[in-house]
Amino acid sequence: MQAIVLSAGKGTRMRPLSNEVPKPMLPVAGQPITAHTAEAAVEAGADELVFVVGYGEEIVRDYFGSSYRGVPVSYVVQDEQQGTADAVHATKEHIDGPFSVLYGDNLYDPEGIDRLFDAAPSIASIRVSNPSNYGVLNVSDGAVTEISEKPDVPQNDLVNAGAYVFPEEARDMLDVSPSERGERELTDVLDRVISEFTVSPVTLDRWMDVGRPWELLEANEWKLGTLDRRVDGEVSDDATIQGSVVIEDGATVRGGSVVEGPAYVSEGASVGPNAYVRGNTYLAPDVHIGHAVEIKNSVILENTNVGHLSYVGDSVVGRNANFGAGTNVANLRHDGEDVELTVKGERVSTGRKKFGVVVGDGVKTGINTGLHPGVTLSEDARTDPGEIVAHDK
């Protein structure tokens, strides 16, 4: 079966982290989001991967090449973002049998994708507490009869989880008219398939749409928790490694440091001396965590330096950033409310009591900078020594 992986989006809700890298290629537990998706498809039996690419396409091509996990890889360019049905339609000439469609910025439990492939034609579903925010699946006699988009009064809590297996005949159903939003919607294709075929709902155990910065934290929390302990790098005899920790070959943990799992220290990264890396932390390649620094539940991307005596908690820090000594991130509001973050120009709740900051590529902070919870520092932003940053910069 062919697996079509939609990876062409710009990821505007993930900015500034997606300014230089397409959202599906942001890292989760040591590999891009879309690599987790591709891996699940291969494990479920996909015999070809077709990536729909656009923004940042070369980054996708460089990572996956012409073959991934022994499965051939093809690429189709979606020149204009005209909707999900348009993205799949771009692959029409590649389709030669039943095919699956997966989102490159979604995470799925692999066992669920395996069941999805076995039940073809099929649609992935998940049970949620707020079904009115999703497309709700109406099911009768074990088959999907309708998808109700964001209904005021949902009939159940079973919603569309954004993974499908289509019959080959759906190849000729992909050229749909634009919706009221001006996009060619894959749900319109689904409606026709549901009317002509018996489509099975397959309930996933877990699913995530990784669309905003705090969801990148949640994604890492999930996938780091599935890793087995592996220590291949250089660890001082005076350092302590606790729990499910991955330390890649070429990484260094210096004396007096503590790394608590689940955590991931990538090739070329260095920790310490006397640093404390707490659970659910991902350190990308060539990150430097200095003397007496504490990192907690954070994602720190490539070539970033966190100078000595700093604290970073519940945060996402971009590439090539430099935190001056004594930079401290606050991650809890005094009023106990959920931390808010700016997404596409609007302040929205993260749904998290603890959330720190989002830092773009190339940011530099002066020594003893203080960052309030929910602050975003744009690409190449600067702070002065001793500056307290309470608003986006």
Rank of each mutant, 00 (worst) to 15 (best):
V73F: 05
A292K: 10
L216T: 03
K344P: 06
Y276V: 09
A85V: 12
K344M: 14
V246L: 03
G233D: 06
V76E: 05
I289G: 02
T383Y: 05
I123W: 01
G366V: 03
A263I: 01
R230G: 09
P285E: 02
L107S: 04
A124P: 01
L227A: 04
H288A: 07
P262I: 03
E169M: 03
D86F: 12
T240V: 07
R382A: 01
D175L: 12
G142M: 00
S140H: 13
V153D: 11
V176T: 08
I194F: 11
V363Y: 04
I194S: 07
N274W: 08
T187I: 14
E58D: 08
E48V: 13
G243T: 03
S257P: 15
N160A: 08
D209A: 14
A325H: 11
D157G: 06
T350I: 05
A163V: 07
N322M: 12
V359P: 00
M208H: 15
R61V: 07
K10L: 04
R319P: 01
E57I: 01
N130V: 00
P110Q: 02
Y68I: 08
S257A: 14
D172I: 03
L332Q: 00
R347F: 14
S244R: 07
D392W: 12
V159L: 05
E346F: 06
P32G: 08
A263N: 00
E294P: 15
V76Y: 02
G70W: 03
A269W: 01
V210M: 10
S200D: 00
T91Q: 14
H288M: 08
V253R: 02
D384K: 15
E149G: 13
E248C: 04
T240N: 05
G362S: 14
D209P: 09
R278E: 13
E218F: 06
R382P: 09
T376L: 08
P262H: 07
N297A: 03
G97V: 12
S177I: 00
E146T: 11
V136G: 14
L186R: 10
N106M: 11
T84D: 13
V271H: 08
I367G: 07
A219S: 14
A29P: 11
F64G: 01
D384W: 15
